[in-house]
Design a protein around this nucleic acid. Structure first.
Lengths: 206, 206
DNA sequence: CGCGACGTTGATTTGCCTCAACGATTGTGG
DNA sequence: CCACAATCGTTGAGGCAAATCAACGTCGCG
């Protein structure tokens, strides 16, 4: 258990220095939670009380539109934070589903505890600023990609930037994340495999 | 001039409290800069040395793809921050153009000065964390909209959420921001005007 | 006034979606 | 452990929203 917990501290230390005293104050604010495959962390309408750090497994966040179509916003694996962030911050009803795609283990913190932790361990304020800076940069890039790339190029791009991640999610989740249908993604993969040629399968993305 | 400068302090105070001593330390770190209509704040390949706060005017950030097509990432008016954030943070070559659409006035800060300011005025660390939280939320919503809404609905959505902003930019910039061509936006507007009926022009978005 | 950039409108094309049927794979209860 | 159902991925046929291409009107500016 504890060796998993230290994933969080190790992760934070990639961004900000922590004294060992500060380090010890972090973990006690978190509770570990397991979530079964296909279990839901949150559903629309509920209030998202926790910010959750993934120490094992994978999850996705998505919405459903009025035609019951799912749209995947995030594909999360180890060292990602998941929450309905708007709901967590403002106590408003959540907009997203968050579902475990693999059996997962999370470290969760409630908002009052997080605020208290900011005061006890000031570098965390900086950590979360850096975290949100990076998230902002990634989303900016994703928007640029959605505006300027074809479905095919978005897929190629994703595979190159996050190798290994695609393999952990059903293809339809990846398709939705990339803004296309499962049918389109299937055709794109077929196209790539064909043009690579039967002899040179070393580009296989499986 | 100073009355414009105080727009920044006033803005920051919407997010975090500042003592008057702290308040006085903020503005001296910034330099005011005017930029003519169609002037460029930054171009791809340059290093973005400043984070710029818009106190007057409007700007857009965009990229061009290999087919010379422009793709607008941001439409900025008063109280927005503009920069090639990645370049600003890491000193890497900028990816974006930033162009003044109207004659504009900015308050600029360099990165070392910003870091120094964090230390002098700790609440700014919190301010920028909150700022990036909000930017993150807005980008998330934009991605959801791009995934789940038609071009028509994205336009309606934008007009409702940012009334007045559209009028300050050429239609083709708005179209690009919304992920469609100028032709498509023109047809959408025509469609909306027609279905509103010739007698009831009170929904006109001009 | 005349040039150039912008918006509009029409004709045509296209990338991706929808619908549908069929394999492949997974998971589950008997 | 097998049989069956359910889910997922693949493939094909047809359709549609939006893009492209192109011509014309309009406005602002030198």
């Amino acid at each position: 258990m504890d060796h998993l917990g230290h994933l969080l501290v190790t992760h934070i230390r990639k961004y900000v220095p922590l004294s060992s005293e500060q380090e010890e104050k972090v973990l006690p604010s978190f509770r570990q939670r397991r979530i079964a495959k296909r279990g839901y962390l949150i559903k629309p309408g509920e209030v998202c009380r926790y910010e959750s750090f993934v120490i094992k497994g994978s999850l996705r966040s998505f919405i459903t539109d009025e035609q019951e179509h799912e749209h995947v916003l995030q594909l999360a694996v180890e060292e990602a934070w998941v929450s309905d962030f708007n709901s967590f911050l403002y106590g408003t009803p959540a907009q997203f589903y968050i579902e475990a795609v693999e059996p997962s283990v999370l470290l969760q913190i409630e908002r009052p505890d997080l605020e208290a932790l900011y005061r006890q361990v000031p570098p965390l304020e900086r950590y979360f600023r850096l975290l949100h800076q990076n998230l902002y940069l990634k989303l900016s890039q994703r928007i640029v990609d959605n505006l300027s790339l074809s479905a095919r190029d978005r897929y190629i791009n994703f595979i190159q930037q996050a190798p290994g991640v695609a393999a952990r999610f059903p293809q339809k989740h990846l398709a939705s994340y990339l803004g296309m249908t499962p049918v389109a993604l299937s055709l794109i993969r077929k196209g790539l495999k064909d043009e690579a040629g039967p002899g040179e399968g070393n580009l296989s993305f499986d």
